[in-house]
Design a protein around this nucleic acid. Sequence first.
DNA 1: TTATCTGCAAACATTTTGCAGCGAG
DNA 2: CTCGCTGCAAAATGTTTGCAGATAA
Lengths: 137, 137
Amino acid sequence: MTSTDPKPGAPGVRPTRQRLAVAAALASVDDFRSAQEIHDLIAQQGDQVGLATVYRTLQRLSETGEVDMLRSEDGEAIWRRCSETHHHHHLVCRQCGATVEVEGPTVERWTDSIAAEHGYADISHTLEIFGTCPSCR
Amino acid sequence: MTSTDPKPGAPGVRPTRQRLAVAAALASVDDFRSAQEIHDLIAQQGDQVGLATVYRTLQRLSETGEVDMLRSEDGEAIWRRCSETHHHHHLVCRQCGATVEVEGPTVERWTDSIAAEHGYADISHTLEIFGTCPSCR
DNA sequence: TTATCTGCAAACATTTTGCAGCGAG
DNA sequence: CTCGCTGCAAAATGTTTGCAGATAA
């Protein structure tokens, strides 16, 4: 494999002003934010990016695993930059939103075995933990 | 307590034709359905109920714990009549919606220990498993 | 130059709400 | 009779898409 790969059909991602702005916004916060909120953050940074572009960028980032995307309780998509590159879950404070990323080989194994037991294939799962963090007690 | 309770301020739920139709639709299937799908089910039963009423009814039923409401992977609300009264999770088929209710003492114990480890209190969690069931493979 | 990206606005899908009329108790 | 319930259609979200023009390589 060579370092450059101009194969026809290869994506070729461009580091545009808009994408840098989204990345900067994501870098400036530690908690999960909606597309609207990220759009507002960019505006506060003095930048100007269309909302559709924010969506498209977040979508791409979550596909490549650079951000975590999950759904709030009312079904809205929320994103956060992801420090771990592999599958993991979140322990989120109900009060202040403080988030801890946790890994669960135990859980992964359990869901896989449950699924296998019932003959289900192509398994995925969602697991989020909510609680009150030490400083909010 | 008497059988009737006309206390001022008490809701006073009326068993109307529409609510019975929603209940019948929920009773006729075992899996999670969207509001639209439940609306269609009612139509197939030969009944006719407004979609807004379906939403209002499902909302009330989920508040009283008579149905489970959860979110599909794309953020859509889906409902199912609830057979278990205690905490449990779901293994849901992406294609046909076939659902298995599963219990996870393993998971409950794991989430509790993770939370304790980070000093979080008053813990709750959401866990849903999605896959393709045997008959949809 | 050329393929990708962006902005805008319109399209979409889901869910909520306002209001006049209907219906159960 | 009265209040709650329903239907309809409009509004409110949140998200996606089509397309012409801008832009990185």
